[in-house]
Structures are given as C-alpha cells and as structure tokens.
Design a protein around this nucleic acid. Sequence first.
DNA 1: CGGATCATATTTGTCAGACAAGGAGGATCA
DNA 2: TGATCCTCCTTGTCTGACAAATATGATCCG
Lengths: 243, 243
Amino acid sequence: MDEPLRDMRTLVIQLRERIADLIREQALRPGDKLPTEAQLTARFKISRPALREALKLLEQDGLIYVEHGRGRFVSAISAIQIDRPITVFESVTEMTGHYGYNTVNKVLSISEEAPDAALAKQLHLDEGARVIRLERLRLEHDDPIMYCVDYVPRSIITARLYDIDWSGSLLALLDQYKQRPRMSAASVSAVMLPQDVVDRNDLRNFGPALLITETCFNAAGTPVVYALDYHKGSHFSFSLARR
Amino acid sequence: MDEPLRDMRTLVIQLRERIADLIREQALRPGDKLPTEAQLTARFKISRPALREALKLLEQDGLIYVEHGRGRFVSAISAIQIDRPITVFESVTEMTGHYGYNTVNKVLSISEEAPDAALAKQLHLDEGARVIRLERLRLEHDDPIMYCVDYVPRSIITARLYDIDWSGSLLALLDQYKQRPRMSAASVSAVMLPQDVVDRNDLRNFGPALLITETCFNAAGTPVVYALDYHKGSHFSFSLARR
DNA sequence: CGGATCATATTTGTCAGACAAGGAGGATCA
DNA sequence: TGATCCTCCTTGTCTGACAAATATGATCCG
C-alpha cells in the first residue's frame, strides 16, 4: 500500500512526518491505538531501530504515548494544537500582525550608553563595551498598545546611529549585519508601566502590562538583543501548550 | 568513572538526562564536540540503539546537532536552558514550591453549578452536565499571592462535595479518580483582579496580575479542569525558551 | 456454572554485531 | 608543491535475538 520512503533527509525525520500524517489521515483520536512496531516496519519497509527513533520523537512531541506490553496510542495533545504559541520565536512586528494589528512605530529615544552590570552580563559584553538603547512605542490607530526598550551591542551596528531608520523592524536591521536573532530566553510577568514612562508619554490609561523580557541569540548562540516589551494587557494574550 | 544507570524509568529517558547533565558538568560550549556514540555506550554501559534514541531526543530539543561522519555537537540553544519553563506542566503547588513559597490554601467557596456555554465547550460537556466551581486564595505568610478559580466536571468526582478537603492539591484529588491532568492548553495575559473579588477579599493592594487560563487534559485527552490562576505580578515571573 | 489461576501470544524494551555512507587527514605520486 | 587516493573515524541503517510487561484464553476447582 505504501511505497518505501527514500529522499535526502534522514530516514527517521521522514518517518516522523509520515507517521504524523498517518494519524491525521486516519483521523485517529486521543486514546486510539497506533499500528504495532511490526506493522509499521512492514508498512514502511524500514528497520525497527529507525522506526523506534521516529516514534520516540513523536512521543517527545506529545503526539503519542506508549505503554509497555500494550502498544502506542494517540495522546491528547494532538487535539490541542495551539495555532501560534508564544514559544515560537518571531519578531514583534510579525506577532502584532498575527493579532490583526497594523501598528506604527514611534521612536521615543535612541542613544548610545554604557551598559549596567546586569545588562553587560546578559549580552556577554566585555569591559568598556557600549550598547545602543532604543525606546519605542507601538501605536494602533494612534493608540499605544506596546512600549518597548531594546538594547543592542554597539559593536554589531557599524553605521552611524542617525543614519538608520529606527522605526522599522529591528530584526530586519540585524539581519543586514548577519546577526538575525533566531531564538531567545524569555521571562513573562505582569507589571504596571514605569511611572516615568507613563508621565513622559501620557500613558495613564495603559493599565496592567504583560512584560516579556528576553535575550535574543543569533544562530551561533551569541546574544544580540536584550528586549523589554510591555504589552497592553487589554490587547494581548499569548497561548502555549504545557505538558 | 560512571556507573551504569538503572531505575524504573526507561533507559532512554534516563540517558537523555544524563547526557544533558554531561554537557552542563563539562561546561561544553556551543560548537563543542560531544563524545562519540562508541564512547558514550562504553561510558554508560548501554547499547547503541538506546543511546541513539536518547541523542535523537536531545537533538529534537535543540540541545545538540549532528553532522554525518563528523560527530555530534552542542548547539546554541544549550546556552539558554531555562531551569523550569512555564511550558512544563505541573501543579500550582509544585510551581509555587519551586519559587520558594510555602503557600496555604484558603477555600473561598465551593459550589456545584451549571456551566455557561463557553465553559461547557472548553470541558466538552454534554447538555445538562454540571460542574464544580472551586474558588481559592493562596497565602504566603497570610499574604495572598494567588487567586484561583477551578472548574471540574461534576461527573468526575463521585464523592459528596462536603466530604472532600478542597484545600489540598486538586491534582492529587483528580489522581485518585484516575483523572490526573497531564497537559494543558494555556493562555497568558495581564489583568487586574475582578472588582468583586477585590471587594470581597480585601485585595486592594494585589496590583497587576498574571492571569493563566488553562484547560487541562488527562492522559486520554479528555478535559478535566478549566482553571483561572491570577498570579500576583510582584511575586511571579515565568520563563521560557523561544525558537 | 463461576471464578481464580496459569500458560501462551502479543507488544514494547534492550542488546549485540554488522555493513553502508559521509567526512577528515595523512600517505602517495606526479 | 599540489592533487589524488586510501584509510580511519563517525554516524546511518539493518538483522536477529532475548527480556519484560500486558492481554487473552484455557484450565482447574469449588
């Protein structure tokens, strides 16, 4: 029924995909039993070790679970697919766009300064290194829905500060310098906006904010941005799967 | 140097942990080479298939990557390992304990009621099904740091409401009925406590709250709890990796 | 006939050994 | 000196086997 699979990716990766497809196609529901290892090896014409590696991956994904001596079963998480979880790294611009917002960036301030100790540690900066501090407001129909502060090591940006349009995507800018962030370590909390920010920008009605503090890393694992993003509580909620 | 590993969990799961430990202990940095499969099988006294399954898991985690013919290497993400990410499902009791809090539960109300349409949908309830509504406050040294509302399908709990000590762990209770939650679909936002809750419980100084709304599922994929957890903003912040 | 017990089959967990395929580095040869 | 080839190392895949947990049905006994 199914031809054996052969292309350039490793067998195991192909297998994982094929088995996930199988679950979808056959509309297997949580609790349903998967074919046994023997049946799957016969079906895909592959060896048991390769199959087991693929199944382990699906198990780690939470798509299936296993009971020794009984078999493998479709697990619950297959039913709770989150459309755009917060755990997927994306730029703020992409994120707001996904929420249906079409925001305009307003640069509040741009400056070069010496990092404090905590920041220098986050960005792995040497003694005497400097950072660019970018403070922005994101407006939806002139209504502020995000307040953002970004810190970028000065050494990354070779251009002069005032030759750059800072109202665009920071990710796109870093991409030009081959420093596109790929992943981040983030922490989430609920706060009120700092009082001075409220005063300076007339944000008395901003209300509670979801603060995401994250250190972003490029593909090589070097930190390239430290960001504080205050999301207006009434406008944002992030989804994720826990298991 | 290392004794072989034996306990009740499957070998592969133990192995994954041991190898992750190895990376930490030896302070391997992104790009560093891992021991070869041959060295690891010798070290841990396990077979190659078992080892490979474990390595595949770490690869999927993004902790390591592999190059055919060259070896396995530590990847960038290993640098941003989050100790206890929010994406790991655990009970509120476990979570607060991890934060160093030793909270006392105070039951505000317990009742049986008819779910509204949204709730019935979240819990996959049939027409006419009823739910238990549990409203609690978590106190740290008499200071409220969480306000929680849980909804559980009435059909799960066979005992009479007032025969149960609701101040304990809800997870432990559900476990007794073989309905232990294993995973959840959650959403995170920043809010103020509802006004009536503030008034009734004297919570004027609670400040902004991190609200986690989640539907919890048992191993079979059936929803068993719908929970609203308001975390006092000044006391909680959750970490996660994004990639 | 009913229920408990036991033997057997099924299914996953683990192991051993082998060969294929890709990559790296040194030896060889022009 | 430089290019080529060979060999070794490492990961990818396969085969076959046995152990351990579970399910099933037969058997035995009251």
